[in-house]
Design a protein around this nucleic acid. Structure first.
Length: 492
RNA sequence: CGGGAUGUGGCGCAGUUGGUUAGCGCAUCUGCUUUGGGAGCAGAGGGUCCUCCGUUCGAGUCGGAGUAUCCCGACCA
């Protein structure tokens, strides 16, 4: 008897359990909302890291590492920045513990109070710009193109596994440029790197766009982003790239000598993606049988399940599998033979489907006789029997097909939930169904705020892609003139 | 920080108007039988019923306080 399947609408976290768990630190409320990434989940993150790293290096960036702790005074240098982050920071006030004089255990040593509190980085602009000040004196020092892989802490009032944990892993790029144009070009370049990564590796279609003033990063002049649609129709911001202007250069007094011999402030960008991408991956592709991983990010491409009755059959089947495994590995695929003898084959089928392994191969005594194997696809849940001699070439080809298929499936889904909306009545009705609403907007924060209050929908982005209608029209809320449509949606 | 719900073996839950030794499913362990879609039978182990205080002859059950978790808001990658 099959166990009851879990509906994905009910709770995505059922799928998460393969990859992460909530940190079990309930005794201490101070660390609520953190997550443990299990080996299988971390393997996906490592694949993402490796690919992103490659793309960063291809665009001329280098990795570096900056401190976890930020002196409190740094955060107050940039006014908007401090407003955006000050409310949600973890603060280090002491540097020593002592044995509790009145009991067992340890207490904070009151004599070890820090002169100036340290902030656990919520993002590293301030500490990095404080460092860049020492690195930059002349136009010859520019540009500086650094990235760091790090963990950051944001004390969110409400956390959500993968999408908004108190501590998360991410990558943050911080670049310094001599001219405004070059910095803007960098901002656009990196958002496009993210878009390419999402589309080609995660198989998640995204819209590239610009944030409205309300949704912009604290301290940025412009925030570009990629927005994805999850299967419940809600939007997920999957990556951001900020044009910071000269705000941080001014705050940290980073000037350089120009070719002409004058002094000027440096232009900055920052950009980042986080473990939230794994959440996007799950929520974009999962079905009622569990995860569906795109081959390019799957830790295991092919799982082989032996079917046998006797020891002899077992040996013969596994021998055949080892042979196929060698062939597949030669083609660059990662293969797992599930040789466990304490669970039955049906259990294994279900379990590997839950984990999202793209292709499953089953071989039994009957196959050995006929020189066939059974190949099952995770994305379509179909299986076929084929000659064992052709299977390696077939599976290698399948990887590309699966990658393409799940992207197209997600793309079709997004298309089916994207509506062109021109009246306020229709807006209110459609927003309840979920999805992206392409609407005209008068460009004012007030209108955006009112729409949010009435419908919980926000402007996800002002699209920069060509596939969104560029036309003049009237604001869906106020009726005032508008130059192009923007995307409204409810979001995570 | 507001509004609501919930804390019972590793996980998911039941537990009646307060009444003996606190149950069930899954998982674990042992044995036998099984293996082409989440196995069956027999047996075994595993509990400070979130914490404290109170009511009572008697509390998992009632009352109070605390605490944690989840959901909905505000806040956000």
């Amino acid at each position: 008897m099959a166990k009851e399947v879990i509906s994905r609408e009910e709770n995505y976290s059922q799928w998460y359990n393969n990859l992460v768990t909530k940190a079990d630190l309930a005794e201490n409320s101070a660390v609520r909302g953190c997550m443990v990434i299990k080996p299988y989940g971390y393997a996906i993150w490592e694949k993402m890291q490796a690919q992103l790293d490659k793309m960063f290096k291809e665009t001329g960036h280098q990795n570096a590492y900056f401190p976890l702790f930020i002196p409190k005074s740094f955060l107050s240098r940039e006014a908007e920045h401090v407003e955006g982050f000050a409310k949600e920071c973890a603060v280090v006030t002491h540097h020593r513990l002592m044995v509790d004089p009145e009991g067992t255990g340890v207490v904070v040593d009151p004599s070890a109070k820090l002169e100036e509190e340290l902030i656990v980085r919520p993002t590293s602009e301030t500490i990095i710009w404080n460092t860049y000040k020492n690195w930059i004196t002349s136009y010859r020092d520019l540009p500086i193109l650094c990235n760091q892989w790090a963990n950051v802490v944001r004390w969110e009032m409400r956390t959500r596994l993968f999408l908004r944990t108190a501590e998360f892993l991410w990558q943050e790029g911080h670049t310094a440029h001599a001219t405004k144009e070059e910095a803007i070009e960098e901002t656009e370049k990196m958002v496009n790197v993210y878009a390419k990564f999402a589309r080609e590796y995660m198989a998640v279609p995204v819209v590239v766009g610009k944030k409205s003033a309300n949704e912009r990063f604290a301290g940025a002049l412009d925030t570009l982003c990629i927005e994805a649609m999850m299967q419940d129709g809600k939007a997920l911001q999957a990556g951001t790239s900020h044009f910071l202007g000269q705000n941080f250069a001014k705050a940290f007094d980073v000037k350089y000598s120009t070719k002409e011999g004058t002094l000027d402030y440096v232009w900055a960008t920052s950009w980042g993606v986080s473990t939230r991408l794994m959440g996007a991956l799950i929520m974009a592709h999962s079905d009622d049988c569990g995860l569906v991983l795109p081959p390019k990010l799957a830790p295991i491409h092919v799982v082989m399940v032996p079917i046998f009755k006797t020891d002899e059959e077992h040996k013969a089947v596994v021998a055949k599998m080892e042979e196929l495994k060698a062939g597949l590995e030669k083609s660059g695929l990662s293969v797992k033979i599930d040789d466990r003898d304490n669970v039955r084959s049906g259990f294994k089928f279900a379990e590997w489907e839950l984990k999202g392994v793209p292709v499953r191969i089953a071989i039994g005594p009957r196959d050995l006789q006929n020189n066939t194997v059974e190949v099952a696809r995770r994305d379509t849940l179909t299986k076929e029997s084929m000659s064992a001699d052709a299977v390696v070439a077939h599976v290698v080809e399948l990887m590309d097909k699966i990658q393409e298929n799940i992207y197209n499936k997600a793309l079709e889904f997004r298309a089916s939930k994207t509506y062109v909306v021109d009246t306020w009545e229709e807006f209110k009705e459609k927003i309840e169904e979920g999805g992206f609403l392409l609407c005209h907007w008068d460009g004012t924060p007030e209108t955006e705020e009112k729409i949010k209050e009435e419908t919980k929908a926000t402007i996800r982005c002002i699209p920069m892609d060509t596939n969104v209608i560029m036309e003049e029209g009237k604001c869906v809320y106020s009726g005032k003139p508008s130059k192009q449509r923007v995307i409204f949606a409810r979001s995570y």
